[in-house]
Amino acid sequence: MSDPALESTRRRLTARQADTVDRLGRAAVDLLSREGFSGLTVRRVAAEAGVGAATAYTYFSSKEHLVAEVFWRRLASSPGTTHETGDLAAKVIDVLGHISLLVADDPEFAGAVTTALLGKDPDVGVLRVRIGRDIRGRLSDALGPGTDPDVIDALEMLYSGALVRAGMGYSSYQEIAQKLEKAARLILR
């Protein structure tokens, strides 16, 4: 796969453009932590990043697109997990835990990711597919060749549901991690 820093939903980026997108992403996360998702706009993020609003809109169609892109970039640039055990459930738990940790340290960002990924923005739809493929690939790698696709589907549903539940505030990310472990072990019995 190519360098995720140079990829965008809409086009391949030059190094300078990638820097602008990165600044916008960092500004979005900072603004989210202070104002929450309701206080986030692409215009406000652009101002925080020192970028013109028109420039920001060339990269992001909406605040949902911006948040989903930040999550995608974190996921795509994070290394895969190494599996030093033969326990399939432990491997899956490592994968799901690793992905969960990409948002766990910032509850406002985590909630925004949940909201953004549920949106109808076509650019978010592109990112949902990319994110889904990445997560499916990581689960498939952990489980090995020949794994029943229905098992992988169930684990994807488990993870998606867990993030929605945490994003809605029903459980903390710590609680979700424990519940993911129990549920993964049940699925992989």
Results as ranks from 00 to 15, higher is better:
residue 109 F to W: 07
residue 180 L to S: 01
residue 106 D to C: 15
residue 147 T to L: 01
residue 114 T to R: 12
residue 93 I to N: 04
residue 155 L to F: 07
residue 33 S to T: 13
residue 40 L to N: 09
residue 97 G to Q: 04
residue 95 V to Q: 01
residue 7 E to D: 11
residue 8 S to W: 09
residue 122 P to F: 03
residue 13 L to H: 08
residue 36 G to Q: 06
residue 45 V to K: 07
residue 157 M to W: 10
residue 137 G to F: 03
residue 55 T to V: 15
residue 20 T to Q: 07
residue 155 L to C: 07
residue 8 S to T: 08
residue 98 H to V: 01
residue 62 S to I: 08
residue 116 A to D: 09
residue 2 S to W: 05
residue 80 G to D: 13
residue 51 V to D: 13
residue 61 S to Q: 09
residue 77 S to Q: 04
residue 14 T to V: 15
residue 154 A to K: 10
residue 158 L to V: 11
residue 54 A to Y: 08
residue 10 R to F: 00
residue 128 R to A: 07
residue 75 L to M: 01
residue 167 G to E: 10
residue 160 S to A: 15
residue 81 T to N: 00
residue 93 I to D: 03
residue 128 R to K: 11
residue 27 A to Y: 03
residue 173 Y to G: 06
residue 76 A to P: 04
residue 93 I to Y: 02
residue 71 F to D: 04
residue 117 L to D: 02
residue 69 E to Y: 08
residue 13 L to I: 09
residue 95 V to R: 01
residue 180 L to I: 11
residue 117 L to S: 03
residue 157 M to D: 07
residue 28 A to L: 06
residue 37 F to W: 10
residue 146 G to N: 06
residue 177 A to E: 06
residue 165 R to V: 13
residue 160 S to C: 10
residue 48 E to Q: 13
residue 56 A to H: 10
residue 107 P to I: 12
residue 53 A to R: 15
residue 90 A to W: 00
residue 186 L to D: 13
residue 153 D to T: 11
residue 24 L to C: 02
residue 101 L to T: 11
residue 43 R to N: 13
residue 4 P to Q: 12
residue 83 H to Q: 12
residue 161 G to D: 05
residue 91 K to N: 14
residue 55 T to L: 15
residue 73 R to Q: 09
residue 133 R to T: 11
residue 134 D to S: 12
residue 131 I to H: 03
residue 80 G to Q: 04
residue 5 A to P: 04
residue 148 D to T: 04
residue 35 E to M: 11
residue 131 I to R: 03
residue 61 S to A: 15
residue 19 D to K: 08
residue 86 G to M: 14
residue 41 T to Y: 06
residue 165 R to C: 13
residue 129 V to L: 09
residue 11 R to I: 03
residue 83 H to F: 15
residue 74 R to N: 05
residue 161 G to K: 04
residue 121 D to E: 14
residue 66 L to R: 04
residue 63 K to G: 08
residue 34 R to G: 08
residue 16 R to W: 05
residue 66 L to F: 06
residue 94 D to I: 00
residue 54 A to G: 14
residue 4 P to K: 09
residue 97 G to M: 01
residue 150 D to M: 14
residue 61 S to P: 00
residue 67 V to R: 02
residue 89 A to R: 03
residue 9 T to S: 09
residue 176 I to T: 13
residue 122 P to G: 01
residue 160 S to T: 14
residue 173 Y to S: 09
residue 158 L to Y: 06
residue 147 T to I: 10
residue 29 V to Y: 01
residue 55 T to N: 15
residue 77 S to F: 00
residue 157 M to I: 12
residue 38 S to L: 12
residue 184 A to D: 07
residue 99 I to T: 06
residue 145 P to S: 12
residue 56 A to I: 14
residue 162 A to L: 10
residue 38 S to I: 09
residue 114 T to E: 12
residue 37 F to C: 04
residue 91 K to E: 05
residue 134 D to P: 01
residue 75 L to P: 02
residue 169 G to A: 08
residue 96 L to E: 06
residue 117 L to P: 02
residue 54 A to F: 12
residue 14 T to W: 10
residue 164 V to E: 07
residue 2 S to A: 14
residue 23 R to C: 00
residue 61 S to C: 00
residue 129 V to P: 02
residue 123 D to N: 09
residue 7 E to A: 12
residue 115 T to V: 14
residue 55 T to C: 14
residue 159 Y to E: 05
residue 3 D to M: 08
residue 166 A to W: 06
residue 81 T to H: 02
residue 141 D to R: 13
residue 136 R to N: 07
residue 177 A to Y: 04
residue 83 H to S: 12
residue 23 R to W: 02
